[in-house]
Design a protein around this nucleic acid. Sequence first.
DNA 1: CGAGAGCTTGAACACGTTCAAGTTTAGTGG
DNA 2: CCACTAAACTTGAACGTGTTCAAGCTCTCG
Lengths: 236, 236
Amino acid sequence: MDDGDEMHFCTTCAFSQACQSQGYDKATLRKLHILVEHIGPIKQGEYIFREGEDFNAIAAVQEGTVKTCIFDAENTEKVLGFFLPGEVIGLNAIHNSKYPCDAVALDTVMLCRFSFQKMALLASQMPGLQTQLFRLLSRDIGKAALLTGDYRAEQRTAAFLVTLSRRHAQSGLSATSFCLAMSRTDIANYLRLAPETLSRVFKRFQSEKLIRASRRESELCELASLEKLAMPILRN
Amino acid sequence: MDDGDEMHFCTTCAFSQACQSQGYDKATLRKLHILVEHIGPIKQGEYIFREGEDFNAIAAVQEGTVKTCIFDAENTEKVLGFFLPGEVIGLNAIHNSKYPCDAVALDTVMLCRFSFQKMALLASQMPGLQTQLFRLLSRDIGKAALLTGDYRAEQRTAAFLVTLSRRHAQSGLSATSFCLAMSRTDIANYLRLAPETLSRVFKRFQSEKLIRASRRESELCELASLEKLAMPILRN
DNA sequence: CGAGAGCTTGAACACGTTCAAGTTTAGTGG
DNA sequence: CCACTAAACTTGAACGTGTTCAAGCTCTCG
């Protein structure tokens, strides 16, 4: 891959975006681009990293969807999160140098991988990059809010859909019509609901014309109503 | 306050510990100590920061206990966390330069405050400090695990007590006997349980001789049993 | 001693779970 | 192209845990 490609490729990465907007010279930017490792395509079901493995790199999702999960004491899967294009996985592995969860590709995934050590070193020379990293980490701290609460199944589901919608929109995609890469079971697991409950909520939403969902295709017909439902969780 | 005092004071801060163990020279260390602002005593019920305020500093708790919370859409309080001595508040405020929650003193609190901007700048020159900051942030990402799950009230409560015990032990205090700075109501709120439910769980634990708790004093008589109960949540 | 907040206790209720059976879907080989 | 299979999803009914509501208790501090 030549420089041009790399440059183009990396504009979708949060890191590069941040640094480019800081007005660094091309030589410095190149240092960042050298760290980038273009990984993929990773096929559905393949692991990106596994719990307990040594941490060495964080990665920005380029394409596809990644699921993170752990197996609890009874060896049942617990879904921790979903990562869409533009989002970064591995940040929770820094603190004790081991990945604390599995990361699995839900569909065909392309990644932008960075050696964290080298990136941190570079961050010392590029204040913008350091700030960006701190921000990225800080943002993830409060992220679990969706799960962190005794909300109704309807509210949880609405909040999930709204969040997904907003994240899609941030990538410039449609906010009201998208394709879910994850199964109902995974969503239910993530929302800490029984699959049966989620199924019933989806049905109710459909009968109330809030959404139209066939299998994986989803359309949010009344985003405003969903946002209203999700208010207690998302607070905006 | 003279330098000696400051030095002594700061040995309990995670930052200083990290940097001292890196073998920095005294001049560099002093740069870090200059950033420290010694705040307190803050009286029970006083706010350390409020939601929406501009972020400028993070702070390590020196003494006492801090509660973080927000008010949800229905204007009911939602407790997000408790911070014991040695723990750092404000990390979740970095990403958009506003505190996303309130921080309240639950008893008399002493703080070590750092301008984050200056600290980040210093971190560029001190790789050990930068690493420490990244670790601190990364550690908080997965921290909400206690709330993030559809666990039984007993398991939640056990996990809460065990976590508290471990955090106490880390400060060199007794792991089995301590004084809770927070009210039952706050604990219940934090664990997303009704106060009534928590009360019943405490009663059950006492009748099973797992704990002895009078008002605020708590004694964990069978830490092993509690840890077993909490296993599904804490995973060790 | 009295007032008020915090905590406890009991009984009815509700939401989501569980279990069991049925339906749809996607993937496979004849 | 269709039949077959396994997995995912849906539907219904009984159940259980935690909530809610209402009342009573107990500390603490004026």
